[in-house]
Amino acid sequence: MKRRNFIQQTSAATAFVGLGGLSSLSIQPDYKKHITILHTNDVHSHIEAFSNNHARNPNMGGVARRATLIEQIRKENPNTLLLDAGDIFQGTPYFNFYGGELEFKLMSKMKYDASTLGNHDFDNGIDGLYAQLEHADFEFIISNYDFSNTVMDGHTKPYKIFHKNGMKIGVFGVGIELDGLVTKKLYKETEYLNPVEIATDMVDKLKNKENCDLVICLSHLGYDYNHGKISDRKLAKQTKDIDLIIGGHTHTFLDKPTVETNKSGNKVLINQVGCYGLYLGRIDFYLDNEKDVESGNLKIEV
């Protein structure tokens, strides 16, 4: 009862400072654990907001605004993870001029926890990516690129477990096949491994061996294709025990997360927020004692 009161007050306070999109807080459910996942994808070096007279996205985006929003949400729930699904680089002269330094520094200032890699993150070559790593205070998580014979060897992680409010959140990452998308001389000896096989291994490790409470896949495979290419929707259906796929690459503007059914008949969420930092994705997970949660009765409100 007390907690509800507190939440309602917080909600009123945030409404007062004029933050949009948080109004559903007042009906926040009362469970033991609350984990918030915030995410971006394909920001493509968009540092500044679009101008007022921009044809498609007038007065949208901007890192400084995103920082405010993230801080607000963190204040409301400190048990928050901030993730990116790749293609941080390329798209404005900021990248051409500074090679990604500013993008990484700003993400570090916003306290991103992790990012996976997109094809455009290789645009200045694997050496160009490596050169910027010193500016990133967050993890690069990618499970299906073998960097053994490259400068990136040892600088990425196949997965990472984050501890929030006593919960273990396992995060792994899958990247798109680089051949045909990026010139070989840029990605060099990076080896692409089958994302479905790797995801299956990762999930087994995170769910069964590490007993993670939540498993999140950061993906730069792309949302969906009408040909055979592996996508987030296909990955969701061909695997199990993933709770959330945070996607990128196809610049898909989902106005709400897609709910897919996995191999074992359970629900998986897929979310992607378009591109250029125009939106921030927010997924709130409420967990309770296993015995109190009726199986097969997961409530999803999107």
């Binding site: 400072v17 004029g18 949009g20 999109g21 948080l22 559903s24 459910p29 469970y31 033991k32 654990k33 540092i47 907001a49 007065n59 949208m60 985006g61 901007g62 890192v63 400084a64 605004r65 995103r66 920082a67 405010t68 929003l69 801080e71 500013l102 520094k105 700003l106 200032k109 916003m110 919960m167 007993n211 409470d213 709770d243 989902l254 106005d255 709400k256 997360p257 969420l269 979310n271 930092g277 125009l278 939106y279 921030l280 994705g281 927010r282 997924i283 709130d284 997970f285 409420y286 967990l287 309770d288 004692n289 296993e290 949660v293 199986s295 997961l298 409530k299 999803i300 409100e301 999107v302």
Partner: peptide, 29 residues
């Protein structure tokens, strides 16, 4: 105490002019 997900809320939040820019970040840029 094993935990299980009971409920999920998902949405997107537009980054628009209603959100005030973080001054420290702006200064840094």
């Amino acid at each position: 105490n094993r935990y299980a997900t009971a409920e999920i809320l998902g949405k997107r939040i537009p980054i628009d002019k209603t959100i005030k820019a973080d001054i420290a970040i702006e200064k840094f840029i």
